[in-house]
Amino acid sequence: MATLEQSETTAEQEDGVRRRDFINIAAVSFAGVGGVAAVAPLVMQMAPDADVRALASIEVDVSKIEKGQAIKTSWRKQPVFIRNLTEEEIAQADAVPLSALRDKETLKERTASGKENWLITLGVCTHLGCVPLGVGEGENRGDYGGYFCPCHGSHYDTAGRIRKGPAPTNLVVPEFEFTSDTVVRIG
């Protein structure tokens, strides 16, 4: 045993108290950090899986869509509208002054250059996510000849822009690219 001086003992004890507190705090905070880190995989597992992410782009052959017709296809499990606009519909859309729009965008900005007749939008109403009508033959296309959402009465024009009703913005145009004259890749 070491030689003990009374005063040294006291000093050691005080030092000891400080060192002890430090180690206890370090141990508890280390364990806390570990606990928080362990939560990461529990949160991450809810994000889209690798196979869901792998389906993030699709290719669509649009050669069979006549002028004035539209089709509904599915991208990332959401409906996508692909419409082949007629000359009148394009003219109608171009005739609208930007000031009359809630969400100011021209048809040109919403389509690929040189392919202004191909209007590609998500078929998801920007209000609360219903699928608007107007793709099928004879469906209600709303007051502005585009799409009409029956849930809460949003009217979209021939460029898929919101004109009347509760929806805040135009139908979303997904990222797309014509890989050839007749094939479009979405996503």
Partner: peptide, 10 residues
């Protein structure tokens, strides 16, 4: 192993 060592000292 670091956490275990610290916890052991504590």
């Amino acid at each position: 192993s670091i956490a275990t060592l610290l916890a052991f000292l504590a």
